[in-house]
């Protein structure tokens, strides 16, 4: 049973996603539909972000100690940066231990989901703005923003 508790993040995301889905299919008001799409969209962001998290990790902003030019000689310094992959982390730690220097290992969460979602959020607001603009125009043309009334007007015309 405890095996399944490690999946709680997906379940939360699925719950939020289904709430958004419900709003989209059950409500006929166009603005409410867009709100539902927004909730769905945010839950997708959360899905990606939770997948990028690594236990005991920290934000992927590297500690400033080495790297850059002119610091080549300091690469055997007191700290080593390592990344999320378990084996690699292990190897890096060992390597520094072998050289007889104390090694402080940093674990970073995966930056790639962050990057993807960063772009998705901004594209999301752009498309939301477009959808809202269309709603405003629909209201001006039809005088209502209820889906079924609009469809009825279209059928009658």
């Amino acid at each position: 049973m405890t095996d399944f508790l490690g999946l709680y993040n997906y379940w939360i995301v699925i719950f939020l996603m289904m709430t958004g889905f419900y709003i989209v299919i059950a409500r006929e008001n166009l603005i409410k539909t867009i709100i539902g799409l927004n909730i769905f969209q945010t839950s997708v962001f959360l899905l990606y972000i939770t997948m990028g998290k690594v236990t005991h990790g920290t934000a992927p902003i590297l500690r400033e100690s080495h790297g850059g030019e002119g610091h080549g000689s300091e690469h055997h310094g007191a700290e080593s940066h390592s990344v999320e992959h378990g084996q690699e982390l292990h190897a890096a730690t060992e390597g520094h231990l072998d050289s007889g220097v104390e090694a402080v290992t940093e674990i970073y969460s995966n930056p790639i989901p962050s990057v993807l979602m960063l772009t998705a959020i901004v594209v999301g607001i752009a498309t939301t703005a477009l959808a809202l603009a269309l709603v405003v125009r629909i209201r001006e043309e039809y005088g209502t923003i209820e889906e079924d009334e609009i469809l009825e007007m279209d059928r009658n015309s």
């Binding site: 992927p60 995966n110 790639i112």
Partner: peptide
Amino acid sequence: HFGDPNAPIQVYPQPSFVEKSQ
């Protein structure tokens, strides 16, 4: 599982790019 360091998403784009990026 949540936070698993050996999940495919953490392993497949070779994670050493984080170190190399500096």
